[in-house]
Nucleic acid binder design. Structure first.
Lengths: 216, 216
DNA sequence: GTCTATACGATGATAGAC
DNA sequence: GTCTATCATCGTATAGAC
C-alpha cells in the first residue's frame, strides 16, 4: 500500500473517530506511518487530505445503502436496511461531519455531505414509494417524508447510543420505528397475530400485496 | 452581570455553536469581554468552565422538555413537544456534545450528557405510557421504545437539516414521525376484530387520523 | 517521493503586581 | 478580582537536501 493510500485510509478513520477539527496532521502521520515530507507532497494541506478521505467515507456509505435498490419486495428492503447491523457507538461516518464546526464553515466539505445525504434520501424515498405503489403501505403514506424520518431515526439513534455509551438506545429507537412502520402497513390478508410487533426480526416473505383500492 | 456569569454565558453559547474541542479560551474571553486574569481566577481550566456551561445548557433543555409533564391529555402533550418550534440549523445543545471527541473522552462531561438524555427519555416514556394507558394508542405500543424513537427523530433531524443547510428535512422528519404516531393511535370505533381488553376506554386524542400528506 | 530542519501563530495555561 | 507578562507545546505548514 503506497503512502497516499495509507494517508487517505488513516484520515478516513480519524474523520470517523474524531472528526475534522480535532484531528491533527501529526495524528494522521502517526497512524499512517507516513513521514512529514511525504504527507505534504501528496496533500498540500490538511483540508485536501480531508476532502479525499471524506469522499472515501461517502463512497462506503453509498455502497451500504445500495441494498435499498436491491432485489426483493420494497418493504422488506426498507426494513432490512433499517435493521442492518450497525455499530451504534461508532456513529455515522458522514453524519458526524455535520457536527464539526470546521466542516460547517467549509462550503466544499459541507457540499459533499449534503450531496451524500441527498442521495441516501432519494434511495430511501424510492424504495418507500415502490412499497406504497405495491400496496404494502396505507396509501396516505408520504414516501419522501418517511424517508427523512427513517434516516433521522438512525442518525439520532447514534446520538442516543453515544450519550449512554450503550448501543441499546439505538437498537430500541430503530426497533420502535420498525414497529410504527408496520402499524402503517396495509392490513395483510389475515392479521391475527396477538403479540406485540417486534418479536420477529425481519420480515422476508412476500408482501401482503392486496391490490384493493383505497376505501375512503 | 458579573464576570463569572458572562463567562458561563459565553461558553454555553460556544458549546452550542462550536462544541468543546474547537472552542478556545481566547474565544470565550472575546465573547464575554472578560480578561485573562479574571477568567482563570473564576475557572482554573477550560474544562471547569465547560462543566458549568454544560450544566447550564442541560438545565435549559430540561426546562423545555417539562411540557411533556404538563396538563392536557398525554397524546397531545407528546405531539406538542415533538412539533414544538425548534431551530433546526442550530441543533441540540446537549446532543451536539456526543459528537465532540474531547467530550467523549471525558467521563465527567459525558456523564452529564448521559444523565440529561436519561431524564429526557423518562419524561417522553412517561407521557407515552399515560397515552397507552388512556387508550390513545394501540395497546401493543411500547412506550420506552417509542420514546427513544421520537428522541432519535429530533436528534437525527438536526443532522439532516445541518447537512442540507435547510430546516426542511428536520420538519419533514418529525412530521413523518407524527404521521406514523397517528397511524398507531387506537381507532375510534371498534373494528371487525375480536374484543380487546380495555377497548372501550374514552378517547381524548385527535380523530382516528390517517397520516396527512405533505401537500395538505 | 521521502527526509530533516525550521518557522510562526494559537492554545491553554502560570506568575506576580495592583 | 483583574491586569499584563511570560511560557511550553501543538498545529500547520514551508524549504531544501537526497
Amino acid at each position: 500500500m503506497d503512502s497516499r493510500e495509507r494517508l487517505v485510509q488513516a484520515m478516513s478513520e480519524l474523520l470517523w473517530e474524531r472528526g475534522y477539527a480535532d484531528t491533527s496532521p501529526r495524528e494522521v502521520r502517526q497512524r499512517s506511518g507516513v513521514g512529514q515530507g511525504s504527507m505534504y507532497h501528496h496533500f498540500p494541506t490538511k483540508r485536501d487530505l480531508a476532502l479525499a478521505a471524506l469522499e472515501r467515507n461517502i463512497a462506503d456509505l453509498a455502497s451500504a445503502s445500495a441494498e435499498l435498490d436491491g432485489p426483493g419486495d420494497p418493504l422488506s428492503r426498507v426494513e432490512a436496511h433499517l435493521m442492518r447491523p450497525r455499530d451504534a457507538l461508532k456513529g455515522c461516518k458522514v453524519g458526524r461531519m455535520t457536527q464539526d464546526p470546521q466542516v460547517r464553515e467549509d462550503p466544499e466539505l459541507l457540499a459533499l455531505v449534503a450531496r451524500a445525504f441527498a442521495e441516501a434520501h432519494s434511495r430511501w424515498a424510492r424504495a418507500l414509494r415502490e412499497a406504497v405503489d405495491a400496496g404494502q403501505f396505507r396509501d396516505d403514506v408520504d414516501p419522501e417524508r418517511l424517508a427523512y424520518t427513517l434516516m433521522a431515526v438512525l442518525q439520532g439513534g447514534y446520538v442516543l447510543a453515544i450519550a449512554q455509551q450503550d448501543p441499546g438506545p439505538f437498537e430500541e429507537a430503530r426497533r420502535g420505528a420498525l414497529d410504527l412502520l408496520r402499524a402503517a402497513t396495509r392490513p395483510a390478508t389475515t392479521t391475527t397475530h396477538g403479540g406485540r410487533p417486534g418479536a420477529d426480526s425481519t420480515r422476508a416473505g412476500p408482501a401482503p400485496t392486496s391490490p384493493t383500492r383505497k376505501s375512503e
